[in-house]
Design a protein around this nucleic acid. Structure first.
Length: 268
DNA sequence: ATGGTAGGTACCCTA
């Protein structure tokens, strides 16, 4: 089973790029963030036509929005409201698997970006981000065990490791790489002893990015990237993890998202 | 130290 996550930054504008990625990579399950559209204007027909007959979408006007598009059926699909808001940042689906006595849960997350100022007293968006990550940690721990097969993926808006950013030193005070966020994300990772599926393949001392700002003139040349998009799996899934792909080339071409798709293969 | 670009929307918000 091939699972892909992508912060698409408007699914309506990016539909041709999405169909291109789907055709090239043939993922079984596509998880999107920042779809930026209410469900009634989600381009669902084109995706069904492309083979993604099973859809779980949860969007709103202008901001946020998450979606799961699948070739395989779900047994359950859920919408989760976080930190007392209804801002379309967490949905989940359950997929049956022969390998486990219970379904595999897939959680599609769009963690708040957190604004510019890394100070909760001055910036409510940063406070919201930290509370969101805390709540995720608590919720995963309260609703599951480390023996359950779960996948958590999406735009986490945090680059936790030194080599998840182009300059550790220069980004220590930049939202996405501050010590307080990294500590919160560690708390979330500890909640179910989550394994970082991408760092399973790419050593921690090697640079790895999934996002490059639109503000850089030549993103490839300057290469000031960050690894904001993640795929985490619980321990029972680790023996089934076969491959990963970061579709860096998707940052090129006509009307690219500032994030690139990230993918894993699980034999389920 | 600053400002740079993109998307959606409605004249400004978020990233």
């Amino acid at each position: 089973m091939r699972i892909l996550t992508w912060n698409i930054n408007s699914v309506r504008l990016r539909l041709p790029r999405l169909l291109e990625v789907a055709g090239q990579c043939q993922p079984d399950i596509i998880c999107l963030q920042e779809t930026k559209t209410p469900d009634e204007s989600f381009p669902i027909k084109a995706l069904i036509k492309a083979g993604y007959e099973h859809t779980h979408i949860h969007g709103m006007k202008s901001y946020n929005g998450v979606a799961v598009l699948s070739r395989v059926p779900f047994t359950t699909s859920e919408i989760h409201h976080r930190v007392g808001k209804e801002d379309c940042r967490h949905i989940s689906v359950y997929v049956d698997s022969r390998k486990f006595g219970k379904p595999v849960q897939i959680h599609c997350l769009y963690i708040p970006a957190g604004g510019d100022e890394p100070d909760t007293a001055l910036n409510p968006k940063f406070d919201h981000k930290l509370k969101f990550v805390d709540e995720m940690a608590r919720w995963f721990r309260d609703n599951n065990t480390e023996n359950d097969p779960l996948v958590a993926l999406g735009d986490f808006n945090i680059a936790p490791l030194e080599h998840d950013v182009w300059s550790h030193r220069q980004l220590l005070k930049v939202v996405s790489h501050t010590p307080v966020e990294v500590e919160k994300l560690k708390g979330m990772q500890d909640s179910l002893d989550w394994q970082d599926a991408i760092r399973h393949f790419i050593p921690e001392d090697q640079k790895c990015y999934t996002w490059w700002s639109y503000r850089n003139k030549d993103w490839r040349k300057s290469n000031r990237g960050r690894r904001l998009d993640h795929i985490w799996i619980t321990k029972p899934l680790v023996p089934h993890l076969k491959a990963h792909t970061i579709l860096t080339d998707a940052r090129d071409g006509l009307k690219p998202s500032d994030h690139v798709p990230v993918m894993i293969d699980l034999d389920l």
